[in-house]
Design a protein around this nucleic acid. Structure first.
Lengths: 205, 205
DNA sequence: CGATTATGAAACGGTGCCGTTGCGTATCGG
DNA sequence: CCGATACGCAACGGCACCGTTTCATAATCG
């Protein structure tokens, strides 16, 4: 038995252990470059090594190809959903959209989102990973908010949750994308209110 | 005066005229490659020349850089909006979303849309060109449909047209993107109906 | 200590694309 | 026919990156 290992029978291999610091700086450099607008296809191992202050060998020893590295890099992006989930359904939805809006302000988040969105054809594994890491957790949280609203009567009992989510998120992304870059501060409120009201005239409130 | 020219004083330069056929096949090859999922950055002049059956010289003689070529290629994409604009507002909106849905089925349209969407950081001129060619004309048509509905009372008189458009288009794109690729046939109807109704319960119909 | 493995740096041959040039041919105006 | 320009094609030197190898050094084991 080896005194150093935690539990499994995977004995520590002899020799110098791999540097976790190097591993972190490689992944950090990858995210850095992607965040600066470099696409996956333009991303070169040499540029990552240079940025990370690391030999190419150290990268090739851990990842056999670029896509694997990018997948692992994406995996370190924690799903940050600071949804307080305290107030009314409307407030929670506005908060959700505000998070999206805030993120699209930062170049890094924006570029990484672009990559995940547009490279879904060429890099399906990447898109899948991004979906499970960043999209799905949020979807679940906001879906819960909507269902709560359906229970309390704040929302229609027969509301299609996935559809509602798509209307809100889709509108936010759409307007941010096609509106000269920077969206007005009250955009989240306006989207939520418009979605809540619907397009038809209300017969009698 | 030169008998060959149409009107302007731009005298026909001596020598063999440029082949319009070559020009067309270059642009066609460019769209072909982009439609196959090749990104703008991976797109090489040599691959275009090869695909078009053309010498590199012929390309360089007309476009000084790759981006100019891609811009001109995008410019040949006619804005195809077959909106009959005949029935109810609901029907017209469903038709509009159905066009989007149909286009995302074709690999070529999908890839070109991806390029226009995601390369907006790296190639702003491209994104701008795509917006003015493919996005804006449709926006105008559907905006007119919505305003007609507001006049006839089919829609709320105080409806925010741009917001409504974003909700519809955004939801369509969002669901298509995050739903395993192929969307159900009745998706346009469901989106339109959900958007028309709104999320709140109707007090009394 | 010695065995073993990892590290950063440098160099390797190979490849694909760059943008340019030269070549022989084709197509126009005069 | 002649001068001019465009054509397709092939070749150029140059560059960036590929994935691998070598090397001196560092870290960890028994």
């Amino acid at each position: 038995m080896n005194t150093q290992q935690t539990a499994e029978g995977a004995a520590r291999p002899a020799g110098r252990p791999r540097s976790e610091k190097a591993e972190r700086s490689i992944i950090e450099a990858t995210l850095d470059l992607l965040g600066e607008g470099i696409g996956v296809s333009e991303l070169s191992i040499e540029s990552i090594a240079s940025r990370a202050g690391v030999g190419k060998t150290t990268i090739y020893r851990r990842w056999s190809n670029k896509e694997d590295l990018v997948v692992d890099a994406l995996a370190t992006l924690k799903p940050p959903i600071p949804l307080p989930q305290g107030g009314t359904v409307r407030d929670d939805l506005v908060t959700y959209l505000r998070v999206i809006q805030e993120e699209t302000r930062h170049l890094r988040t924006r570029c990484i989102m672009n990559i995940a969105m547009s490279d879904s054809e060429r890099h399906p594994r990447l898109a899948e990973r991004f979906r499970e890491l960043a999209v799905e957790p949020r979807r679940a949280v906001v879906a819960a908010v909507l269902r709560r609203g359906m229970d309390t009567g704040e929302l229609r009992a027969d509301l299609d949750v996935d559809m509602a989510l798509a209307l809100l998120s889709g509108a936010m992304v759409w307007l941010t994308k096609w509106s000269d870059g920077h969206s007005p501060a009250d955009l989240p409120e306006r989207i939520v209110d418009e979605a809540l009201k619907g397009f038809r005239p209300r017969p009698a409130e």
